[in-house]
Simulated scan of single mutants.
Amino acid sequence: MTIFSKIVAGEIPAYKVAENDEFLAFLDIFPLTEGHLLVIPKKEVDYLFDLDDDTYTGLQLFAKKVAIGLKEAVPCPRVGVAVMGLDVPHAHIHLIPMNDMSSINFSLPKQKFTPEQFNATAEKIRQAIG
Rank of each mutant, 00 (worst) to 15 (best):
L70N: 06
K65S: 07
K16V: 11
I12L: 00
P77K: 09
A18K: 13
Q60Y: 15
L32W: 12
A14T: 00
T2V: 06
R126G: 11
A91I: 01
C76Y: 10
M98E: 12
T121V: 03
D21F: 14
A63I: 10
H92S: 02
P115Y: 02
A63C: 04
E22P: 00
R78G: 12
S103R: 09
H36C: 09
A9S: 11
K65P: 07
Q127G: 05
Q127H: 07
R78D: 02
G35C: 06
P89A: 11
V17S: 05
P75Y: 14
D46C: 07
C76T: 08
G80C: 01
M98Q: 13
L86E: 13
L108N: 15
P31D: 05
M1H: 15
F4C: 08
E123G: 09
D50N: 15
H92M: 11
A18P: 06
V39G: 02
P77I: 13
P77D: 07
H92K: 09
R126P: 07
E19Y: 09
D53G: 08
F4S: 05
T55E: 05
D21Q: 10
M1P: 14
I125F: 14
H92I: 15
G80N: 10
A91P: 07
I40Q: 03
S107A: 04
L24G: 00
Q111M: 07
L38V: 02
L24H: 00
D53W: 12
H92W: 09
Y15A: 00
Q111T: 03
I104C: 14
V83R: 04
R78Q: 15
A120L: 14
I129W: 12
G130P: 12
L70I: 11
D46G: 05
V83T: 14
A73N: 04
S103K: 09
D54I: 14
V83D: 06
M84N: 13
I125V: 09
D21L: 14
K124P: 09
E116F: 07
F23Q: 01
G58H: 05
L32C: 04
V83P: 03
F62H: 03
P13I: 01
T121F: 10
H36P: 11
E22M: 06
G58E: 05
Y15Q: 03
Q127R: 15
G85N: 08
F113K: 11
I68Q: 08
D54T: 15
H90Y: 03
T33C: 13
A25Y: 05
Q111I: 08
K65Q: 11
T55K: 12
Q111V: 08
N105I: 10
D52V: 02
L24Y: 02
K16C: 03
G35A: 12
R126V: 11
K112M: 12
E11S: 13
I3L: 14
H90C: 13
E72V: 15
F26T: 01
I93C: 06
D46Q: 13
G35V: 04
L51Y: 09
K16E: 00
L108G: 13
A63D: 04
T121W: 01
Y15P: 00
